[in-house]
Design a protein around this nucleic acid. Structure first.
Lengths: 338, 338
DNA sequence: ACTTCACGAGACATCGTTGTCAAGACTCCC
DNA sequence: GGGAGTCTTGACAACGATGTCTCGTGAAGT
């Protein structure tokens, strides 16, 4: 019923009949094979136009064994600007290779990630960019061995040898904390997400080596991990400030934490210094200037996509890990330090 | 070469050979047809597992005439949070229908939009959601007549009768301006994008009817259209404030304009009231509270997707225009008025 | 004038899968 | 015990396109 509303979609054989030629000749014309008499070409094109014929790409790629000109992107959540920026960058590179992009959400769920992976393989995508939710990717090995190209983004894979593109998390955090130390802060509150998350772990490690390198004594009350929401970050800031020996500066492990910390400092009118990992839109319009460890999210996506297309194009070199540099953007730091 | 790296991908016939059954039996097993002897099912599944077989969805849908379980989304620019929120909402609904989403960018270019449209039709997507870049969509008619389902989002189509889902732009702007009028403002600067853009046109019209309804005399120096970037918006604000009879309030036609206006007011320390169309993230953290005409972007995407799946599911009712309501969010309005 | 060759066009097989149909085995019932 | 019915299974064709091969035609060469 619902498929019978309008006229059936014409096939190349309908076109052939209308033009009075063989299907193969139609195929030649729509594939721009030069050895067709101009007269026939015209007849065929006329029939194509009249019938509104459009080649069925599925049938075409099936028969010809060509690539599907599709890649997949498995990502946490498209509504998150970080991820959507990546998706936009990947789509742009894909377009440059005349390739479509299927973006699917893993909702940060390892099981869903695996389901999506399989589904995309069944669609015969030419390659996959994966922002890992799970921590074990050995399930991808059979597909990798059968030629599925993969690039891991933002977090390296485990259980499989494959390309990855990640941010220089540890060094970035190190630089951020170091800058606070140079400004004379000795008591720095560090707030990070769960160490189960690769980036959080790396950033925490970077922050710690900076503190250790400066000979700052370790104080457990100044480190809080497992903070997932702004509200929790605000609470962590509150707890530290109300503690015995409050910090004069904070290092926030990601932008959600930065926002939460900022809200709490703003609420109290407290002037502790704050440096956060991740830049974010409108940060220049924040109630107070903000120093951040920034990186080029677009570069992250673009680099991964380019790596993938290099692989698809035949690059068979040893898998590599590309590290995207961070840079410290100091904004109004002088106002925040004593 | 690049296709010969690993073992060739096994087909159902490889599985059949390995399991010692016919291809049809394999087909039955992987499609859960119940009438297969449990013993054979096991043999087949064992072979499937051993060979790492994955059904080729392209071949499957080609033969069976089933839907491709793919829809397309043609949108301006994924990096824009407005669009990426829509994409996320559409993807979520699609997932609920076991459907993948191919998102392509028109880069707001009518010609590219048309190219993308054709490409997606060739992929035999089951339906399309289009955020129009161009103003003439008669080119979609042949496809529509052949059963391509389409829903237009954010802007209605022209040249074709099809479903659309739009924001209540005129009424939203009306309400926003009306609120400023109620607060006692009589000189309100209105800044909008190009009237060539549907939403800008509608919002401008809504703002004007509010002004006219209040009997406010029309003053051309207080209306500026064709503003595309924050910097231009800032300039427009500056020009108006430096004019003969400066406004005491501004109505900004979209969030880019709001940001630009805000920056200029902030720079000058000027306390004119500001109401903007479009809410945006972190608006609560702005240097000053901000009243906005907000709407649920997710609802916009979700509604369009649901409409599309209703059509795909066979709904053959007359095309409809769904209007998404706006609501005025007053933030600190009392601080900004005299 | 006859062979050779290039070239345009079509017949046919094929990509990986599923729909159709029929054959064989088995059960059941009068 | 034999015909009917049920249940499994496989052979074959087909989805819409393209690769391969062959055939007929006409031009070129000697």
């Amino acid at each position: 019923m619902s498929r019978q509303d309008g006229p059936r979609r014409p096939t190349i054989s309908d076109v052939a009949a209308a033009a009075g030629v063989s299907v193969k000749t139609v195929s030649r014309v729509i594939n721009n094979v030069p050895s067709v008499r101009p007269e026939l070409v015209e007849q065929v094109l006329a029939a194509v136009g009249e019938l509104g014929f459009r080649r069925n790409e599925l049938a075409s790629t099936l028969r010809s064994g060509r690539r599907t000109a599709t890649i997949g992107l498995i990502i946490g959540d498209l509504a998150n600007p970080f991820y959507s920026t990546i998706a936009a960058a990947v789509a742009k590179v894909a377009r440059g290779h005349d390739t479509h992009l299927i973006t699917v959400s893993s909702e940060e769920d390892p099981e869903l990630e695996q389901i999506q992976f399989v589904e995309l393989c069944q669609r015969r995508v030419d390659g996959l960019i994966i922002v890992p939710a799970g921590s074990d990717h050995s399930y991808t090995r059979p597909e990798a061995e059968m030629g599925m190209r993969m690039v891991f983004l933002d977090r390296p894979p485990s259980g499989i040898l494959a390309d990855s593109v990640v941010i220089d998390n540890a060094r970035g955090a190190h630089t951020g904390v170091e800058a606070l130390l140079k400004d004379g802060h000795t008591r720095i509150g560090v707030i990070a997400d769960s160490p189960a998350i690769y980036t959080a772990r790396e950033r925490l490690a970077g922050a710690r080596t900076a503190l250790a390198g400066a000979g700052t004594p370790y104080d457990g009350s100044l480190v809080r991990v497992g903070v997932a929401h702004p509200a929790e970050a605000a609470k962590a800031v509150a707890t530290m400030l109300d503690g015995m020996n409050p910090p004069t500066a904070f290092f926030a492990g990601n932008n959600r934490i930065t926002v939460g910390a900022l809200q709490e400092l703003y609420r109290r009118g407290h002037d502790a210094a704050l440096t956060g990992f991740d830049d974010f839109e409108l940060s220049t319009l924040m109630p107070r200037p903000l120093t951040v460890v920034a990186y080029d999210v677009e570069e992250l996506g673009r680099t991964a996509a380019e790596r993938l297309f290099a692989r698809i194009g035949g690059d068979a070199s040893w898998p590599s890990e590309t590290v995207i540099a961070t840079r410290l953007i100091r904004r109004g730091a002088e106002l925040l330090t004593h």
